[in-house]
C-alpha cells in the first residue's frame, strides 16, 4: 500500500511539473527539463547497482548509448513503432548487455567489475563506430516529428512527458526496492558479501538482477535521445560526461536512499543547464568533476546525510 501511495504522489508531482511547464510555455523549458529528467532516470538507475549494491559502474554511457542506437535501428527498420515500444526494446537490449557483463565479471572483486564496465564502453563505441547501418563515425540523422502524437503540443513536449513518466517509474521502482526483501539483500551485499552469503543471500543472482535492472533503465533513458538531438554520433552518444554525471549525482545527493540521486540530479542537472548557457559547457563539466571530488572527500553521505543525524 505504501508503494501505491508513493506512486500516486509521484504522479501528482509529475502532473504539476508538466502543468507548470505548459504555463511557462517556452520550448527551452522543455528542452532543458528533458535533460534534467533524463538524469533523474540515469542517476536512479546507477544508484540501484552503485548505491544499493556497492558495485561502481563507469559504463553508463554505453548502456545509455546502446538504448539510443537501438532506437536508430528501429527507426530505420520499423518506423511505425511508437516511442514507448522503442524504449522498451532499448531497455531490454541494455539490460541483457548488463546481464552478460555481470555474468562475466561479478564473481570477481568489485574493482574488476568497474574496470570491465569502462572497457565495455569502449568496445561498444568501437562496434557502433564501425557499423555503417547506424551511420558509423559520421553519425545518424533522425527527423523529429513536429507534433506530439497524443496531445496537442510540440513533439518536444511529448518527449518531456515520456521522460517524466520514465522518471516516475524509475524512482518508484528504486523506492520499492529500497524497502523490499531485495533491498535488504542488496544492502547486505554492499556491506559484506561473504556475510550476506552466509545469511542465505544468493549474492550472484541479486547482483545480476541489480545490473540488469540498472542497465535496462539506462537503456530506456537513452532510447528517446535520437529524437531529442536529431543527430546522433558515437562521440556524443558515448560521451564520458554521462558517466561522470551519473556517478556525481547520486554521490552528491547521497547513495543510501532513493531520494539522494533525485536530489543530486535535480541540483546538478539544473546547475549545468544554467552554467552551460551562462558560462560554457566545458566549465560546467569541470564544475561537476570538482563537486564530485569535493563531496566524496568532505560529505561522504551526500546532501541527504546532512538531514539525518
Amino acid at each position: 500500500m505504501r508503494n501505491a501511495y508513493f506512486v500516486l504522489a509521484a504522479l501528482a508531482v509529475a502532473v504539476v511539473t508538466f502543468a507548470v511547464a505548459r504555463l511557462i510555455d517556452n520550448a527551452y523549458v522543455f528542452f532543458a527539463g528533458y535533460v534534467v529528467l533524463q538524469y533523474i532516470v540515469l542517476a536512479t538507475a546507477w544508484n540501484i547497482l552503485g548505491g544499493f549494491t556497492g558495485y561502481v559502474n563507469f559504463g553508463t554511457a554505453a548502456f545509455f548509448a546502446l538504448g539510443a542506437y537501438t532506437t536508430v535501428v528501429l527507426h530505420k527498420t520499423m518506423p511505425f513503432l511508437p516511442l514507448p515500444a522503442m524504449m522498451l526494446v532499448g531497455g531490454v537490449v541494455s539490460g541483457l548487455i548488463g546481464l552478460g557483463m555481470g555474468y562475466l565479471t561479478l564473481r570477481l572483486r568489485g574493482t574488476f567489475f568497474s574496470i570491465a564496465t569502462l572497457a565495455m564502453a569502449v568496445v561498444a563505441q568501437t562496434l557502433i563506430t564501425n557499423w555503417n547501418f547506424v551511420g558509423g563515425s559520421r553519425g545518424a540523422y533522425i527527423i523529429r516529428p513536429s507534433d506530439s502524437p497524443i496531445f496537442s503540443g510540440d513533439y518536444i513536449q511529448y518527449l518531456f512527458v515520456v521522460m517524466l513518466a520514465l522518471s516516475v517509474i524509475s524512482v518508484s521502482l528504486a523506492r520499492a526496492i529500497q524497502f523490499s526483501r531485495l533491498g535488504f539483500g542488496f544492502s547486505a551485499i554492499r556491506d559484506d558479501e561473504g556475510a550476506a552469503e552466509a545469511s542465505g543471500v544468493p549474492t550472484l543472482k541479486l547482483k545480476l538482477i541489480a545490473t540488469a535492472l540498472s542497465g535496462g533503465l539506462m537503456g530506456m533513458a537513452g532510447a528517446p535521445l535520437p529524437y531529442y538531438v536529431t543527430y546522433l554520433d558515437p562521440a556524443s552518444g558515448f560521451s564520458l560526461s554521462y558517466a561522470v554525471n551519473t556517478i556525481a549525482m547520486p554521490l552528491i545527493g547521497g547513495t543510501a536512499t532513493w531520494l539522494g540521486p533525485v536530489i543530486g540530479a535535480i541540483l546538478l542537472g539544473t546547475l549545468q543547464q544554467v552554467a552551460t548557457v551562462t558560462i560554457s559547457s566545458a566549465l560546467s563539466l569541470l564544475l561537476v568533476g570538482v563537486l564530485l571530488v569535493t563531496f566524496v572527500i568532505a560529505a561522504p553521505k551526500g546532501i541527504v546525510g546532512w538531514f539525518k543525524k
Partner: peptide, 17 residues
C-alpha cells in the same frame, strides 16, 4: 571502495577538462 573509485574518476575528469 566506492568513494575512492569515484574520487579517481573525478580526478580523471577534472584533469581532462
Amino acid at each position: 571502495s566506492i568513494r575512492g573509485l569515484a574520487f579517481f574518476f573525478g580526478v580523471l575528469f577534472i584533469t581532462e577538462v
